[in-house]
Simulated scan of single mutants.
Amino acid sequence: MNSTKITISEATPVPTTVRGNSAADIRQARRAARAFADRLAPTPRPDAADTLVLVVSELVTNALRHGDGAFTLRLNAHPDAVEVAVDDTSPRWPRMRTPDLTGSGGGFGWPMVQGLARTTAVTRRAAGGKTVTAFLSR
């Protein structure tokens, strides 16, 4: 008789949701992303945790700035990726634009997210608005 031993090597933290509509809520989203990364097992490399926090910061900031002023952030762990999904009520898709090197006009966030994520997607929400999703390596 063969016995099968099952070993769970990857702990998956409970999905995390943060809702917000202010700069203080961006800070809360960053803290939630860091806490989420800290609960992952195996613990991600420091640069991977920093990347998660940066992508969360950029996506929720963009949702506030360009998405009608409110966001819902959802963080989910998968065996080989972390999913960052941000809902907002605007139907406008993120777009690549020339970054403003004077520091006043932005344009850095979406290209940065595109470069850091394994993949990104933008989908329309049935209730209106959109969800911007980024998958990051664990």
Rank of each mutant, 00 (worst) to 15 (best):
T4Q: 13
T4Y: 05
K5L: 13
I6R: 13
T7W: 05
T7N: 07
A11Y: 14
A11L: 14
V14R: 15
T17H: 02
V18K: 08
G20P: 01
G20S: 03
N21V: 00
S22R: 14
I26S: 04
I26N: 02
R27K: 10
Q28Y: 01
A29E: 00
A29Y: 03
R31F: 01
A32N: 08
A33N: 09
A33V: 10
R34G: 09
A35Q: 15
A35F: 10
A35C: 08
F36E: 02
F36H: 04
R39G: 13
L40M: 15
L40C: 15
L40D: 00
T43V: 12
T43Q: 11
T43W: 02
P44W: 00
P44H: 07
R45L: 15
D47A: 13
A48G: 05
A49W: 00
A49G: 14
T51G: 04
L52E: 05
V53D: 03
V55K: 05
V56T: 14
E58M: 09
L59W: 08
L59C: 10
L59T: 05
T61M: 03
T61F: 06
N62F: 08
A63G: 11
R65Y: 05
H66N: 05
G67F: 10
D68G: 12
G69N: 11
A70E: 11
A70P: 07
A70R: 11
F71M: 05
R74I: 09
L75Y: 04
N76H: 08
A77T: 05
A77M: 09
A77E: 04
H78M: 06
H78L: 14
H78R: 14
D80K: 04
V82R: 04
V82L: 08
V82D: 00
E83H: 08
E83R: 15
V84W: 02
A85Q: 06
V86T: 08
V86E: 07
V86N: 03
V86C: 03
D87L: 02
D87P: 00
D87S: 11
D87F: 03
D88S: 12
D88Q: 03
T89N: 14
S90V: 07
S90K: 09
P91S: 13
R92P: 02
W93L: 14
W93T: 15
P94Y: 07
P94I: 06
P94G: 10
M96S: 06
R97G: 10
R97A: 14
P99D: 09
P99F: 01
L101H: 08
T102L: 08
S104I: 10
S104P: 01
G105R: 03
G106S: 04
G107M: 06
F108Q: 05
F108N: 06
F108E: 06
W110F: 13
P111S: 07
V113W: 10
V113L: 07
V113Q: 07
V113R: 00
Q114P: 00
G115T: 09
L116P: 07
L116C: 05
A117Q: 07
A117R: 06
R118I: 14
R118D: 03
R118S: 04
T119L: 06
A126Q: 12
A127S: 15
G128D: 09
K130H: 12
T131I: 09
V132Y: 12
A134Y: 11
S137T: 13
R138E: 03
R138W: 07
